[in-house]
Design a protein around this nucleic acid. Structure first.
Lengths: 200, 200
DNA sequence: GTCTATACTTTGATAGAC
DNA sequence: GTCTATCAAAGTATAGAC
């Protein structure tokens, strides 16, 4: 995902390169020239595959990266023996990736989401769609554990908020303290909800 | 804070203008020409007051905005009758500001923090210092309520993470749902901690 | 579809008159 | 301290040969 594969088609290399740079430098901080350079693609190919220019490329990358990251998180839940362990593993896994990438790879769309929220409506909508899809996916996990719809959705939002917020603190401080604290907090909240619902 | 006062000194108008634009468009998305234009200041004045250029201006704005926002949050705690109400009021007040500013004014440094985390070390350090000062301030409130040091710090980090993460979801979706969910979650966690400590 | 060259705009930054 | 003019570089986007 971070390193474009040499043999992949040009369009895919451009998408991968853009996704990697958005995560590190954001939307306005990533130049089209840097994108094609890292993708080993000629400049003209970018506008051939994305006639809509930087904005169209951005929308596609947000949807793509968002879907991939959502799948990644859901696979962590799948691999865990129970919900509580799954929640814990998400934060622990995120911290491990952060350390392994020198605090560069956190959420693939949060930086872009904040940058475009008040200045680029198509991109803002794209990030909103991704976040909503994550909320829906996570809610399904909480419902499957026996929680009612509104509790499940509220927990899903709290789970994602804790993860995204901790990412900011961790990348700024270059420590994993926030993800550890947020992970324990998420576990406490989920455990309390399960207890209240009588399914624990 | 958002609208530079006409009568304020030039340097202060530049700082206010920069703070307002950083919140909406981020660091790379804010041009120096836009800053002086919104500040009603000539271009040369910027480099007269900030010989270090955009980066030096950015560092000063981060520290200034960070201190002001930290004070604002602490004043909400001061005005509340108890800790739990204070926590609740922070999320409710943040949601009100978000709606009043058309989902533009959330945290003054989170967008910049993510943008510069992997590309501009002096700015990254500035954002880290601000976040740490907030953690220390919030921890003091939790300790004052009777919690031990490590619990207080963990709750402070969770509190800030929930707030920052919810800001992202709210600005992207243009709804206050996430701040409401995160606020209720924060209250649940703090209440549980107080109960566990036997001070509730 | 691939690739090069270039147009046009905006960026951060500087020089120097007042 | 204020203000204007200008620089070199980087930004997005386009034209057109191959």
């Amino acid at each position: 995902m971070a390193t474009p594969v040499e043999s992949a088609p040009t369009k895919q290399r451009i998408l991968d390169s853009t996704a990697a740079q958005f995560m590190r430098h954001g939307y306005t901080g990533t130049g089209l020239k840097q994108i094609v350079a890292a993708a080993n693609a000629p400049f003209g190919s970018l506008y051939h595959h994305f006639p809509g220019g930087k904005q169209a490329l951005g929308v596609e990358v947000i949807h793509r990266s968002g879907a991939m990251y959502g799948d990644l998180v859901m696979s962590v839940f799948d691999a865990a023996p129970d919900l509580l362990t799954g929640v814990h593993d998400c934060f622990e896994g995120a911290a491990a990736v952060l350390v392994a990438t020198d605090y560069a790879d956190a959420c693939p769309i949060e930086t872009v989401a904040l940058e475009v929220a008040s200045s680029n409506e198509p991109l803002r909508v794209a990030t909103a769609e991704v976040f909503e899809s994550w909320i829906v996916s996570a809610s399904a996990r909480f419902r499957a554990a026996g929680l009612d719809d509104s509790t499940a959705r509220e927990l899903a939002i709290a789970f994602i908020s804790l993860l995204e917020g901790a990412f900011i603190l961790c990348r700024a401080s270059r420590t994993t303290e926030a993800l550890e604290a947020a992970g324990r907090t998420a576990a406490v909240v989920v455990e309390a909800a399960l207890r209240d619902a009588g399914v624990s």
